[in-house]
Computed example of a mutant assay.
Amino acid sequence: MIRTYYLLTKPGIIMGNLITTVSGFALASRGHFDLLLFLATMAGLGCVIASACVFNNYIDRIADEKMVRTKNRPLVQGLISPKSAIVFALCLGFLGLVILWIYTNPLATAVAFSGFFIYVILYSFWKYQTSLATLVGSIAGAIPPVVGYCAVSSRFDIGAALLFIILVLWQMPHFFSIAMFRAKEYGAASIPLFPTERGHFATKIQMLLYIIAFLVATVLLIAFGYTGTAYLVSVVVLGLAWLALCIKGFKSKNDVAWARQMFRLSLVIITLLSIMISIDTV
């Protein structure tokens, strides 16, 4: 039963978000790493993200029945009752916000709650109404590194803003890739997708523009004196590789396979980006 509740929190999503949180925390720390504050930030935000994921599982339980990828989730299989899931989500969210409030600061707590609200209340419902909900979801996904940054700095400045912008710009091509190779699954659940509504060519144009903007945003971290040369070299190489693969997609004869490549590369990029921000902060 413990494992069932654990799976309900979508541990993969939690891990991915906490990786970016580390980069925000390290960027604001600038070499003065507070271990206790770091652990409290990770624990508190981890609980908030887990709570949001459980709520999302509850909201998606009907649609999840129609998709092969999600039909075995605990709520769909009846392994956990909807009421128990709600109670679990509330407890996780309350615990996480209390930890952040006590051990970090009101700003970090408020930012974390805003991400929770955007993901659960706005994105989770709007995604059934409009494909533009993807942009809303990208805003929620860009919150974790900002929480990490604000937990240390107690302020929202240009560093926090750049992290937020970078994550939003990264997520759009990432989400579009998923939408392209999982279009049939989402279609079965009646979830509107940009590639389905506007076509693959229009989606590729959007991805190209977002990746170019992403490249510019990542370079701004060094321009404003937050990171060093090693970071710059890494992000330029990775960004150009992503851009090249995106351009290659305009000649692709198998968009599903190409989208999977874009998706995998996007994961490599955000992981290495987070690592380089963490170890090459000025």
Rank of each mutant, 00 (worst) to 15 (best):
residue 130 T to G: 13
residue 157 D to Y: 10
residue 224 F to M: 08
residue 137 G to A: 08
residue 233 V to A: 11
residue 102 I to P: 05
residue 207 M to Y: 04
residue 131 S to G: 11
residue 100 L to I: 02
residue 119 Y to K: 06
residue 126 W to L: 15
residue 109 T to V: 03
residue 241 A to P: 09
residue 11 P to N: 06
residue 93 G to A: 05
residue 39 L to W: 06
residue 250 F to M: 03
residue 73 R to K: 13
residue 53 C to G: 15
residue 192 P to R: 00
residue 77 Q to Y: 09
residue 124 S to H: 05
residue 221 L to G: 06
residue 183 A to H: 12
residue 71 K to H: 10
residue 281 T to S: 10
residue 149 Y to N: 01
residue 16 G to N: 05
residue 158 I to Y: 12
residue 58 Y to I: 15
residue 70 T to H: 09
residue 150 C to K: 09
residue 18 L to G: 02
residue 261 Q to S: 15
residue 209 L to F: 06
residue 118 I to N: 08
residue 256 V to Q: 07
residue 93 G to N: 05
residue 62 I to H: 13
residue 273 L to Y: 13
residue 142 A to K: 01
residue 244 A to F: 12
residue 125 F to D: 13
residue 274 S to K: 00
residue 24 G to P: 04
residue 107 L to M: 05
residue 146 V to P: 12
residue 187 G to H: 08
residue 181 F to C: 04
residue 26 A to G: 00
residue 108 A to Q: 01
residue 58 Y to K: 12
residue 277 I to F: 02
residue 166 I to E: 12
residue 99 I to P: 01
residue 6 Y to K: 07
residue 180 M to P: 02
residue 159 G to P: 11
residue 209 L to E: 04
residue 20 T to I: 05
residue 71 K to T: 13
residue 41 T to W: 02
residue 244 A to S: 14
residue 62 I to Y: 08
residue 156 F to Y: 13
residue 47 C to F: 10
residue 234 S to Y: 12
residue 134 T to K: 07
residue 210 Y to A: 03
residue 124 S to P: 00
residue 98 V to N: 14
residue 191 I to N: 00
residue 146 V to W: 14
residue 29 S to E: 04
residue 257 A to M: 14
residue 93 G to E: 00
residue 172 M to Y: 06
residue 85 A to S: 04
residue 197 E to W: 05
residue 139 I to Y: 00
residue 35 L to W: 11
residue 203 T to N: 10
residue 230 A to W: 09
residue 165 I to W: 07
residue 267 L to G: 10
residue 151 A to L: 14
residue 52 A to M: 12
residue 43 A to C: 11
residue 117 F to P: 00
residue 156 F to E: 09
residue 95 L to G: 10
residue 245 L to G: 15
residue 276 M to N: 10
residue 179 A to C: 03
residue 195 P to R: 15
residue 231 Y to E: 03
residue 208 L to E: 01
residue 44 G to T: 06
residue 230 A to I: 15
residue 160 A to L: 00
residue 59 I to S: 09
residue 162 L to V: 02
residue 192 P to W: 02
residue 116 F to T: 01
residue 161 A to Y: 13
residue 195 P to S: 09
residue 59 I to M: 07
residue 131 S to Q: 15
residue 135 L to N: 02
residue 64 D to P: 09
residue 148 G to V: 10
residue 230 A to E: 03
residue 25 F to M: 08
residue 203 T to E: 04
residue 98 V to L: 15
residue 7 L to G: 11
residue 161 A to K: 02
residue 141 G to P: 14
residue 81 S to H: 03
residue 4 T to L: 06
residue 280 D to S: 07
residue 69 R to Q: 03
residue 144 P to L: 12
residue 85 A to F: 01
residue 267 L to M: 08
residue 282 V to L: 10
residue 36 L to W: 09
residue 143 I to H: 08
residue 140 A to I: 14
residue 22 V to F: 10
residue 204 K to V: 11
residue 34 D to W: 02
residue 30 R to D: 01
residue 269 I to P: 04
residue 82 P to F: 02
residue 91 C to D: 11
residue 26 A to V: 00
residue 278 S to N: 04
residue 278 S to A: 11
residue 195 P to D: 12
residue 186 Y to N: 06
residue 7 L to V: 08
residue 143 I to N: 11
residue 48 V to I: 04
residue 146 V to D: 15
residue 97 L to A: 00
residue 151 A to P: 04
residue 131 S to E: 08
residue 268 V to Y: 09
